[in-house]
Amino acid sequence: MPGRFSYDNRSAAILVFPVLAVLLVVAAFPILYSFWVSLHDIVLTRPLRRPFVGLENYGRMLADPRFHTAVLRTTLYTVVTVSVTTVLAIGVALLLNENFRGNKLLNALLLLPWATPSIVNGLMWKWIYDPTYGLLNAVLVQLGLLESYRAWLGDPDLTLLLISNAAIWKQMPLAALLLIVTMKAIPEDLYRAAKVDGANVVQRFIHVTLPALRPGLMLVLVYETMISIRHFDLFLIMTQGGPGDASYTLSWLIYVETFRSLRFGTGAALSYLLAMLTFLLSWLFIRFLGERRG
């Protein structure tokens, strides 16, 4: 009597099982456990009490003014970072997609910011913006564009944009590379046909390049959004959420709630809210930019 599963299926199951077990331990369990934690009022400095509060942590955070501020800051930061990164990446990809002398060297140089560790990137830009001996002040003053040194990161109207600039510098190269790969796959015939039809450079870009870039653009938008919305390291190094609450983003709020206030329950709830927001945005991008079949 033949078994329900074939020999191949059983072998495959046995071979996959160790990986599955590891995934369950290192991925599934923490995810489920953190959700369980988010349903409790856990404050590490009060170890004797950890009552089950259901969804109260979620309600409390949603009503917290700090959460509203953090959502606003995160949205602004994400919109600026993702849009500027994408536009710059398209420009760089268009440039590097052309054949010219030094193209390979530029391609290699492009990788430098991306290869720089985030901590180093944050420290580098913090020094560039420094109010006393920063490069930005020195350059602007010497060019006569600024009268005296400014505290760039101390200006709450500029802080988020300046952090965003540091993020764009690091993230744009990878986005450009992803788009270059997509551009290389566009058939040359399409451009020739467009030229025959009398399309100029701009028209060829709008009607040939952009539609063909859709898969690459979707990848860039989803990836950059997921990275930006959860960005933490630059905020830790450059401003610590300040000045005041000028760079108080969701990831910073999670850090403060979890590791400074040691409120693991609300910290976990916030993490879930951030995860849900990330999934929602990613789904929207895939839904509207994904390849349409049929």
Binding site: T45, P156, G241, G244, R260, S261, R263
Partner: peptide, 22 residues
């Protein structure tokens, strides 16, 4: 106080807000 760790976060923001003129 037992709630110092939580309160001081708000305190830092409050002092900075004053300095920023916010």
């Amino acid at each position: 106080s037992p709630w110092f760790g939580e309160w001081v976060e708000t305190s830092n923001q409050a002092w900075q807000s004053v300095c920023l003129g916010r």
